[in-house]
């Protein structure tokens, strides 16, 4: 048992996976349990960066880069701005929704069990994607040859969303 465990950990990839996934989960748990909102955002940033590490392990270097750039960078900053623009007391007063919380806990655990069983039940092929050295280049070719229309649509969507966000958040002067 212990030998198996050591054996498992002696593989570098496995060790890295364990470390990153630990960081992901710990970050997520801290997000839920920390008291101050700013701390929560930092915990979340940890999770995002660890996820980027996992992406690298999955041969998705470009996505890891994007992850760090957008999530850990832009979005976390956006959230901090959001926090700063609204007032936040410490969440020390316990919410009075006992039934809600119990049901939520049961539901979440149940949902996890279903997912876990489904994962254990599924049969996956052993084949592996041949890792490409030029991941970013391949994505670029793929994106601008086969997926150019979705790409343009998404960019329009993003523009619309940001303009909309500005209009919504703008102070209604008159």
């Amino acid at each position: 048992m212990l030998e198996n465990f050591i054996d498992f950990l002696s593989n570098g990839e496995n060790l890295l996976f364990i470390i990153f996934s630990m960081l992901v989960i710990v970050g997520a748990v801290f997000l839920i349990n920390l008291q101050r909102v700013v701390h929560m955002v930092i915990a979340l940033a940890t999770t995002f960066i660890s996820l980027a590490g996992l992406y690298v392990m999955l041969d998705a270097e470009f996505l890891a880069f994007v992850q760090v750039l957008i999530y850990a960078g832009a979005m976390t900053i956006l959230m901090i701005f959001g926090i700063m623009m609204t007032k936040h007391e410490k969440q020390n007063e316990e919410p009075k929704r006992a039934l809600h919380n119990v049901l939520l806990l049961v539901g979440s655990i149940g949902f996890f069990i279903i997912l876990y069983l489904a994962i254990q039940d599924a049969v996956f092929p052993i084949q592996e994607f041949t890792s490409n050295e030029e991941n970013t280049k391949m994505i670029g070719i793929e994106l601008f040859t086969w997926h150019v229309i979705p790409f343009e649509l998404v960019s329009v969507l993003l523009t619309v969303a940001f303009i909309g966000a500005i209009i919504v958040a703008k102070r209604e002067e008159d």
């Binding site: 809600h100 049901l103 939520l104 539901g107 979440s108 149940g110 949902f111 279903i114």
Partner: peptide
């Protein structure tokens, strides 16, 4: 959201 979650679980179950 909670009700939706529980309903989903019940359907799956």
């Amino acid at each position: 959201g909670l009700v939706t979650l529980i309903g989903f679980i019940i359907i799956i179950a």
